[in-house]
Each structure stands twice: as C-alpha cells, then as structure tokens.
Write a protein that binds this DNA or RNA. Sequence first.
DNA 1: CGTCGGGTTGAGGGTGATCAAAGTTTGTGG
DNA 2: CCACAAACTTTGATCACCCTCAACCCGACG
Lengths: 240, 240
Amino acid sequence: MQATECLLRKLQISRSLDADDIKAIERLPVIVRDAGPRSSIVREGERPVQCCLLVEGFACRSKTTDAGKRQILSIHIAGEIPDLQSLHLEVMDHDLTTLSRSTVGFISHDALRVLTRERPIVAEALWRETLIDAAMFREWIVNVGRRSAVVRLAHLLSEIATRLRRKGLAAEDRFELPMTQLDIADALGLTPVHINRVVQELRRAGLLELRKHSVFLPDLPRLRELGDFDDLYLHQSATG
Amino acid sequence: MQATECLLRKLQISRSLDADDIKAIERLPVIVRDAGPRSSIVREGERPVQCCLLVEGFACRSKTTDAGKRQILSIHIAGEIPDLQSLHLEVMDHDLTTLSRSTVGFISHDALRVLTRERPIVAEALWRETLIDAAMFREWIVNVGRRSAVVRLAHLLSEIATRLRRKGLAAEDRFELPMTQLDIADALGLTPVHINRVVQELRRAGLLELRKHSVFLPDLPRLRELGDFDDLYLHQSATG
DNA sequence: CGTCGGGTTGAGGGTGATCAAAGTTTGTGG
DNA sequence: CCACAAACTTTGATCACCCTCAACCCGACG
C-alpha cells in the first residue's frame, strides 16, 4: 500500500480519479525491493514483463552509441515509473539504471493491463504520464541541441529543482542530487572536464553551490533565466 | 473514409484490431484540409481541441529557444498523428508545422475520447503510437548529444529512409524530402553552413546524392553503419 | 530581368574536446 | 584508526570541430 501511495499522489495531481479507481490502484500487486546505487534495472534489448515504480531514490535512462559514448535521456525521482512505456513497447530501446541506492516496486504488465482495460480513466492518467515523459524528452533535445554548456547546466538544475519541489521531496533551492560530474556530462552531451569548468562558472556567478552530492541554488530566478527555463513542458500547471 | 485509411494501416501493423474497432475508426469524423508548405498547424501555447492526421506530405515539430534558435524535434510522414499528445496534454509545448504542401485531417478530441473510452484496444494502439514517438525522441537526443555532424546526418537520412519504406511511401534508397539544408541544420543542432559541408562529405563518400529535394542513397548499408543506425527504437519488427 | 530563397565557398575564431597529471574525497581492509 | 586504493574533481596545455561572418552563385519565379 505504501508503494502505490506515491504513485497515487502523482496521478491525482492532474486527474480526478474516483474512489474505485483509487482502490484498484491500491490493490495493484507491487513487489518492493531495494536496489544498490548504480545498479541496472532493465537493459536495452530486454523484454520486461513488469514496470518499475521508483519508490525512493534516483534513477536515469540512457543509451550508449556504437562509439561507446553514453547519453543520459532523463532523470527520475520518487513516484515515477521510468519504464512505463514497456507496457506497450515489447523491447527496451535503452537502459534504466539507479543513480542512488533506491527502493523500487515492480508491477507486472498483466496487472497493469487488467487495470487499464477495466478503468479507462486510470489508463488515461498513465498514458498522460508517458506523454509528459515525451514532453521532457523534447525539451532535452533542445537543451543538448541548441544551448551552450552553461545554459544547459542551468536548465538541468532548474528542471530537477522544480520537479523535486512539485513532488514535495525537497526545498526548491536545496536538495541532494546523486549524480557525479560525469553523469551530468552524459546528461548534457558534454565531457566531464568541461562540466567541471562550467560548474565553477556557475559557482563564481553565485548561482550554484555543489559539494559532493548536495546542491544549493542561491538565486533560482536568475538560474532559471540563465537556463532558458520555462516549466510549461512539465505540464503541471493548475489550469492545465 | 480515405483519410482514416492511412491511420488504420498504421495501427494495424502492430495491433490486431477487430472488425468493430476498425469500423469505429472508420466512422471517426475527419475534416480534411489542404495546407500550404511551411504553414503552421498548431503553435506552442495553444490549447488545441483536435488532433491532426497527416494524410499526405511532411511535417515537423519544433521548439525555439529564448535566443531565437530553432530545434526540430521530429519529422512526420503520411499516416502519422504528430500532435496526438494534445489529447491528454492541454497546452502545446512546441510548434507543429508542415514542410511540404500537405493534406491534413482534423479529428476532434471529443470524438477520440469517446472512441478510446469505449474501445480499450484502440486506445492502446494509439497510446503505443505516442510511445514510439517518445522512443524516437530518445534516439534524437542521442543523435544531437553524442554524435559528430556526419554521423548525425547519416543517421537522420537512414531513419527517414527506413520509415518511408515501412509505410510503403517510397523506395528505401530514393525519395523526396522537402527539407532545406537549414531545416536539416535545425534538426541536427548544427548550422546550415556546416550542414552544407557535411552533405558534400557524404556526396564525396558516395553515400548521398541530394538535388533540390530529391534524395538518393547509393549505399544504404554503409550509410546506416556510418550513421550508427539500428532500427530497434522504431519498434516495428515483426516479433515485437 | 531583377529579386529572393537557398546553396556554396572561404577565412578566422571560439566553444568544448582531448590528453595528461595532480589533488581530493570516499570507501575498504588491515 | 590508519593505510591504501579507487573514484571523482580539478587544473593546464593543446587541438579540432563546428560557428560566425561575409561574399558569391544559382535556379525559380515574378
């Protein structure tokens, strides 16, 4: 019950599920497990029979090119189902890996399919989640395709801060982020060396304090402006 | 009836819809219209009440940064519904524009919602389409994030060739592509000047003939290899 | 025939990559 | 609690890919 709670919180933000919907979700059989840091949940090429609900911790999706370069596609926080797409896409086209030590809940595709076929409103809420995912991918494309290194980093930090805040997982300007500078580099399509320099640039500008894995953003408005960040693409506003 | 035909062809590739499903889709009220080249279909910030079925022609989705740089997010060909996500995301987070003169069919959200609530299998087929969309975004991120200019272009051409072929819209190695070099630049996160040089590099390598808008790919296997292209992410294989 | 969008070419510059090494923190086992 | 290894961060020097700016060319179209 605890595991599905965070899922419920997420889905209810945007949809009004009725009491039966909520009960049905709470009845979902979830197998909860702990996962070490940097452990693989699913890999490209596999055909999962379950989805992974991230109950606590951080995870990321990534692909690796023939040349061996890794590109991180998205960062995931508690309450999200990073591989929901596997419900209708038979084979994984990317990897899903934890960043921090995490607790994950596995929900079988069968159970989810029963749920979504019987409860179209729940199906729509889940569908919507995958659409928001896609919206975040679009913004990610813009970030790596059309912005300079500093702006990319400012944007990434702004996004994570905003999402953590929305979920009530952290203060907006201060949170733990279990990514190394190498991870950040792979997220932004840059090299770790250059990330280091850009981090220092943000530090000097008074926009970032980063020690180990703890982030403090002293001036979020300016960071957002620098990062060309507009949260429209997160599709969380009250009005829709 | 003609307009929904191409949609049906698409959905049936991956799903076995029953006769009633098919009838229900055929009964969808579609308003068909012609659209000039480079005309806007929906813009960022709008709240569409309909989806756009691309019956003929090419379209693309794009976003523009504060700095005024455009990033193309995807190319769309006949039979696709580039803004299907608007069914569950109230406001557009990007633009949808035609590339060539096109014919488009508009289907109201209301009609689609009725259809998907009554027919879960159709809903799943449409959901799946949006998931494939997301998979293409992921690959696009890798393309702009981690590949060199030549490789990016080779990849883009390989993808378009493969998709056109799959839909039976063109021979795999020869097709019309109504994109200028500026469009290609915006798709790959590069400048038109550099695209021009890279096009010439592919020409010299005997991998591309590009005249006006007609593309010929003399050696697709080598182009695919150069472009690091693996069609897994298109999720079209017979086995899943 | 002139204009315009788009393609092509050249020169020079800058952002970020690469390579290499040293410094720092974290974790582990003695 | 210390010693050591491993992982990560930082710094410096050099390099290359791609950008910028600018001009010219070409074909389409009025």
